[in-house]
Structures are given as structure tokens and as C-alpha cells.
Design a protein around this nucleic acid. Sequence first.
DNA 1: CCCGGTGTGTACTATATTCTAAACAGTAAT
DNA 2: ATTACTGTTTAGAATATAGTACACACCGGG
Lengths: 128, 128
Amino acid sequence: MSGNPVFGQRIRDLREARKRTDPNFSLRKFAKAVGISPTFLSKIETGEFDPPAADKIIRMAELLEIDADELLAIAEKVDPELTEIIRERPVAMADFLRTTRGMSAEKLQELTERLRREVESEEDDRQS
Amino acid sequence: MSGNPVFGQRIRDLREARKRTDPNFSLRKFAKAVGISPTFLSKIETGEFDPPAADKIIRMAELLEIDADELLAIAEKVDPELTEIIRERPVAMADFLRTTRGMSAEKLQELTERLRREVESEEDDRQS
DNA sequence: CCCGGTGTGTACTATATTCTAAACAGTAAT
DNA sequence: ATTACTGTTTAGAATATAGTACACACCGGG
């Protein structure tokens, strides 16, 4: 891996859009807010360098007010929080994830919805 | 991170057990079969070095005939295959995983079972 | 006693990841 | 023409990851 023009362009587009109404979104100011050097951000935006570490990508998403998972996806990275969730129940989760291989994204979202309702009603049970 | 005595001891115990009936499980021979140097394996088993890369751990599990996910779990690593699965549907999967945070391992296994049946019946539908 | 095996200690090494400082060139306003 | 910004280029460096080569000390059989 070396450089990700799609990620870089995305950041630049979003940053420049915000810069039109907010002077705090110059390359230098944004870099500082993210916690990286202007040098590094420049290289990233022009696609010369790889995207930064996951925590920096998450900070970028916050500042640009977009979904962090989407941005992480473009960077071809996985949120460390997710690997942490896997590490909490390694075998069961590994089993589950491999089972979802054949599933469409829609089916997965449907499943998540169903699950969320179940978890919520479980919490209700505990309260009543 | 530096050294994982639990992982090391586990490998040593399993390897020595196998060595009692199979001379191919000496430290040197096992290291060679795994694809690492005897030096490295020695350091790992005594807990002086971190566990090796995920692919080497998976190879160890194969040779020792135990569950790779369990061994990866002890090493506090995640099978790259799993992060690959996440990267295939990043947003939906992130959403799902965070939803399972509150769930017990049993509930998760139950869910996987249910899901497996659903996926199978979908495949049946396509065939008929 | 030496030969083939056991595991171990010393001393590094290669590669990837994640970045930085400082100088530079351009623009726009005072 | 100086100030105050803009982004960019050159030339690295710090840290982590994932290891290796080689010499050593020990032990059992011939």
C-alpha cells in the first residue's frame, strides 16, 4: 500500500466545502485540529501518502460531520473498536462473521434491526 | 505489548504433549513446520517474545490440531479473514457489531445457529 | 570422547507504519 | 515590499512488528 487518492480527494472535497463558510478549515488549521502536521495532511489529500491511523480518521469524520465508518471503509481500515468487540468473544464472533459471508448488506441491516429490538426488550424485562 | 507467557506456555504444553508420541514435535522441527526459526519459537514459548503473526498462529493450530480462533484469542489477535469480512460491508457490519456489545456469548451462538438455518433455506430456495 | 540431538542467550536486522521539521512558492491585502 | 496567509516539497525519523544467524551448554548413545 502507498497512497490512496480516493480517500485523499474525499477529505479535500469535504474540507474545501467547509472552508467556504468556515476559515478554520484551511489545511493547516484542519491538520492541527486532527492532530497531524500540515505536511502529512497535504500528502494524504494529494494521494501521495496513505490515510493516517484510525483514530485520526475518526477525528476527521467528527470534524467534517460525516460517518466515521464510511471514511474508515474508504481508507480500507477497520475501526479498532470493532476488533476489540471481536476479541471480547473471539470464537463465537468468528463463527458468526463467517456465517454472514453469503449475506447481502440489506439482510445484515435487517438482522441488526431485529437484534436491536431484542436487546431493547431484554433491557425492558430487566427493568420491569 | 512485549511477551505473552500464557500463549507461550500453551504452545509449549501442546507441543511437548505431542512430542511424547511424535519426534517431529521437537522445538526445532515444529518451528520449521510452522515456518519460523527455532530461536523465535523458543522466545515465544518462554514468553519472552510476542506471539508470531496471525498466519503462523493458524499454522500452529493446524499442526497441534486445535481451534485456530481460540489460539488467536489467547494471542490477542484477530484472524485477518475476519477483518476482511468486515471490510466487505463496513458500515452494516460496524453497526451490527456494536449492537452485539451487550449480548452474551450464548445469545450470539444461538443467533448464529438461527442465521445459519436461514442462509441454508435461502440456498434451498434458489435451487428449487 | 565425540556425535547428533535438545533448547537457549546474544546480538542484530528488515520492513512497515506513522508520522515531522523546515524551507519553499504562491497570493492577497496593507 | 512586508505581513500573513495558502498549500507543497525535500528529506528525513521514531516506533512497532516480525522476525534471523550463530554460537552456546547440555544430554544420551555408541
